[in-house]
Design a protein around this nucleic acid. Structure first.
Length: 226
DNA sequence: TCATTAAATTGTT
DNA sequence: AACAATTTAATGA
């Protein structure tokens, strides 16, 4: 049995609302949850994918480590994010590391249930396709920012990703995130984050406050160039 | 409720 | 990376 917060979170998720009552009932039955303390591991490269996971609360950093030991952070996963469908469909093992950037609450749906939904629900398939498409678009956006090698642009894209309403429907316009944390996510120093945020605030794209950012113009953030 | 202190975050060099 | 300034949270009168 899972907590009511997790249950509410899942039943309210866009993919779940599209299911039949019978399917939703099985989801409810198979659902598990887990609390991960700050710094704890949510998934790691090479491990078997047992569950399709959703971020109920907290923040997860998605990263990979190269053979040389260099670490590259892809993105943050904000509340409302569901992830793991890629590994489930492709390789059965995780292809990235997930680390909790703060105390995090994870909802987990067994792989077999996930596949059962894929086989039995057209709306669920549509949701997954939308999810994958959105992620692909975001990947292009981030790759472009990397090539430009402008820290401000990377920060902007990184934030735009975090506030993506398709991927993270629960996220409003405000996310509690220190400049240090943004630095980890975007792969730039805290100083650069600080400067980038000021520039973007000046441009009217967002407001910065103590330990949080409020997005004013998401589209503007996505297309921001330094 | 207010004042004091510690901790976290931000701004600057 | 180090330091100072600022904001928040916690504590106790």
């Amino acid at each position: 049995m899972v907590s009511t917060t997790t249950l509410d979170f899942v039943l309210d998720a866009p993919w779940c609302r599209a299911l039949t009552s019978e399917q939703a009932a099985r989801v409810r039955l198979d659902l598990r949850e887990r609390h991960v303390n700050k710094g704890g591991s949510i998934c790691h490269v090479g491990a078997q994918v047992q569950y399709w996971k959703g971020v109920v609360a907290g923040l997860v950093k998605m990263s990979v480590v190269s053979p040389g030991g260099r670490m590259s952070t892809f993105t943050g996963l904000a509340p409302g994010a569901w992830f793991g469908e890629g590994p489930v469909l492709r390789s059965d093992t995780w292809d990235f590391d997930g680390v909790a950037m703060r105390d995090t609450h994870i909802a987990m749906l067994p792989r077999t249930t996930f596949q059962w939904l894929l086989d039995g629900s057209l709306p669920f398939n549509r949701y997954i396709v939308t999810q994958l498409s959105e992620r692909l678009a975001q990947c292009f956006s981030v790759i472009e920012a990397e090539r430009l090698e402008v820290a401000e642009t990377r920060v902007a894209r990184c934030l735009a990703w975090l506030f993506n309403p398709v991927l993270y429907p629960g996220v409003g316009s405000r996310i509690e995130l220190s400049q240090q944390e943004i630095g980890y996510l975007a792969g730039v120093s805290r100083q650069r984050v600080n400067r980038a945020l000021r520039i973007m605030e000046e441009a009217g794209l967002l407001d910065v406050s103590y330990g949080a950012v409020v997005v004013r113009d998401l589209a503007g953030l996505q297309h921001f160039r330094a």
